[in-house]
Amino acid sequence: MTTGAIQWGFADEGEEVPECYQTRATPSEDDVPVYGLLSRTLIHSPVVKKILPARIRRQDLNDVVFIGETYIELHLLTPLGKLQKVGSKTDIGAEIRDACVFGAKRPIQFSPGSPETGLSEGRGDSDEDIKSRLPAEILAMTTDAGYLQFVYARDCDEQGQVDFVVSRRRIDNRGVHPSHLGKCIAVDPQSRAMAVAAYQDYFRVYSLHPMEELQRQIAEGLPLNPIKEERTFAVHGCFVVHMEFLYTSDIEHVIIILFLIESVRRSSFPSKSQIIFFDVSGLLIEIH
């Protein structure tokens, strides 16, 4: 039963209900409970947690992704410097914890087409060509449902907007727990690896397939799977405050920097903070 923007949940028959949750309303029917518990709102929060430049639709378009709490919005940057909303995805079904973008490097350019709409003049591709083509970049995001999701978009002329393509990978249990992975996500500047961290004690590094391999998967109709290999690392007794990959002059090295704070006080002094560097190049089987 819903009322306006509120969703209610009911206790089982015979279950004791605290007095603070009881109501004095008289039910219209005998089988309708006389009390309800507020679980969540049906209207998405307008809060935008992150804004990412992301060419997840076509290589020749400068798209920007707004990351909300439970939704994403795709906007086009036009030559006039305006943002035009072209699509949104609101059925994620969980709260987004963090997001990043990986893929091929592209030169800075304005989106083709008219200054007002930014729509390309050459949109005569067949449906088969569009479905078998991978964009320059892919959006990766973690959710409190315990999934790592990979998202890209396709133009959809019938609806006038875009169609989002999503693949998921289970990385931890559902819910937010200090040791559950997904608190933050980072990607190597050359898109060779990606890392996901928990609030404390753990982080995991993924070796990524090159974009050519991902293009082959899409062309053959296979589910998108960017992950080649994974390995979990422990930083016991520490909160993971921030995690980031470093730019390196040596293409053979992949280095992660973590800013950690001790989670347990060992004396009357404040908890210590520390910065740790991880060279994960030799810890994964293969970094392309």
Rank of each mutant, 00 (worst) to 15 (best):
L208A: 03
Y206D: 06
E213H: 06
V205R: 01
I218W: 04
V241F: 06
M194E: 01
A234E: 13
P226V: 10
R231M: 12
R204V: 06
P223W: 08
V205E: 02
L224F: 12
F239H: 13
R231K: 14
P189Q: 15
H236G: 09
D188R: 01
T248P: 04
L222P: 04
E244H: 12
R231G: 10
T232W: 05
D201C: 09
F239Q: 07
S191E: 05
V196A: 03
D250H: 09
E212R: 05
L246C: 15
F239T: 04
R216A: 15
Q190R: 13
A197V: 00
P210N: 11
F203K: 03
L246F: 13
P189W: 11
Y206M: 06
G221I: 06
F203H: 02
A219S: 14
H242D: 12
Q215P: 08
M243S: 05
P189H: 15
M194A: 06
P226N: 11
S191C: 12
T232C: 13
C238V: 09
L214D: 00
I251K: 09
F203P: 00
E252F: 14
E220P: 00
Q200D: 11
A197I: 04
T232Y: 10
A234M: 14
S191I: 06
V196Q: 01
C238T: 08
V254Y: 01
Q217E: 13
R192K: 09
I255L: 14
Q217W: 04
H209D: 05
F203S: 00
H209F: 05
E252L: 15
A198L: 10
F203E: 02
I227D: 01
L222R: 07
E244C: 13
C238W: 04
P210D: 10
L224R: 10
G237F: 07
E252S: 15
Q190I: 03
E244F: 06
A198M: 10
Y247V: 15
V205T: 00
H242V: 10
S207Y: 00
S191G: 06
M211F: 10
T248D: 13
Y202T: 08
R216V: 14
Q217L: 07
E229N: 12
Q190C: 08
V240W: 04
E220A: 08
Q215S: 11
Y206L: 01
L224M: 14
F239D: 08
H209I: 02
Y206H: 04
D250T: 03
Q190N: 11
M194N: 00
E220R: 07
L224P: 10
Q217C: 04
Q190E: 14
F233H: 12
F239W: 15
I255E: 08
A234P: 02
V254D: 03
Y206T: 02
F239P: 01
I251W: 09
P226M: 08
F239R: 03
F233K: 05
S249I: 13
A193M: 03
A195V: 02
R231L: 14
H209S: 05
H209N: 07
M211R: 04
A198P: 01
R192Q: 12
I227C: 13
E230S: 13
V254N: 06
G237A: 11
R231N: 11
V254E: 05
V254G: 07
M211W: 04
A197K: 00
L208Q: 00
Q190H: 10
T248M: 14
R204A: 08
H242R: 12
G221M: 11
V205S: 04
R231P: 03
T248Y: 05
Q217F: 06
H209C: 09
V240Q: 07
